[in-house]
Design a protein around this nucleic acid. Sequence first.
DNA 1: GCTAAACCTTCCCACCGTTGGAAGGTCAAG
DNA 2: CTTGACCTTCCAACGGTGGGAAGGTTTAGC
Lengths: 131, 131
Amino acid sequence: MTIGQAAKKSGVSAKLIRHYESIGVTPKVSRTESGYREYSESDVQILRFVKRARGLGFDMKDIKKLVGLWRNKGRSSADVKNLCKTHIENLEQKMRELQTMADSLRHLSRNCQGDNRPHCPILNNLAGEFT
Amino acid sequence: MTIGQAAKKSGVSAKLIRHYESIGVTPKVSRTESGYREYSESDVQILRFVKRARGLGFDMKDIKKLVGLWRNKGRSSADVKNLCKTHIENLEQKMRELQTMADSLRHLSRNCQGDNRPHCPILNNLAGEFT
DNA sequence: GCTAAACCTTCCCACCGTTGGAAGGTCAAG
DNA sequence: CTTGACCTTCCAACGGTGGGAAGGTTTAGC
């Protein structure tokens, strides 16, 4: 399979496939005589694995670890679960931050007339005027 | 005031203050004969404004607009409110995405023993095995 | 066998917001 | 006059992705 065909089958762009290989997230694949990358079904599976992990919000560093654990038949599921737990906590932390922002903005927005006059509690708040 | 003093008073690092100026988010400040930037109280206020807006999750493009609206005494509060509304929607969208990720991860995590054995529903799911 | 299209290769650049460092100039206190 | 703390500009990096250029390869059609 060429990289283009692997891209279609995996849903990962050829551009990104090369990038993942270059940063060591996916293993280096074999090459034809002329230098074209060759992909097998199992190579495509790895790409799909990476794509799903991205979809769950893991960063490339963690995905690298996850791919390693996946391919290591002697792994402990505890290692995977811990990675997962930490990531969940990061997501929850991020959500709390966004929630706090959104709450503040909704509060300010409610107090803003939203008309053609200049008075604006949102700007006043940003300016540090808490009146 | 030098940039270092303005940094302390505003809570924005000198590095970032120069950056904000270079991308046009904050106005260019005056310079001493030797080329040092000079900051007034009102310059520091703008920096604090930017910092608060960042704290509410606005991107630099929006902050540029907000600073413009703030300094424009003939603004309509509707413009500010609209900017704010769009941003709130973006935050809510982001939160939903994170929520979906976290829900999936928590579900997978619950089904993982987390022991020293290799069997792991998390990896199986990432591998596309939905058994 | 030739040509054109579709593919592949590597390389560099961009986004975002922030930080870090290097190389060099300036200012204050000792 | 030196030292150290400050300032200046420029360049690079992070993560994840996309865009494009310049060039080589393969495949289909004639």
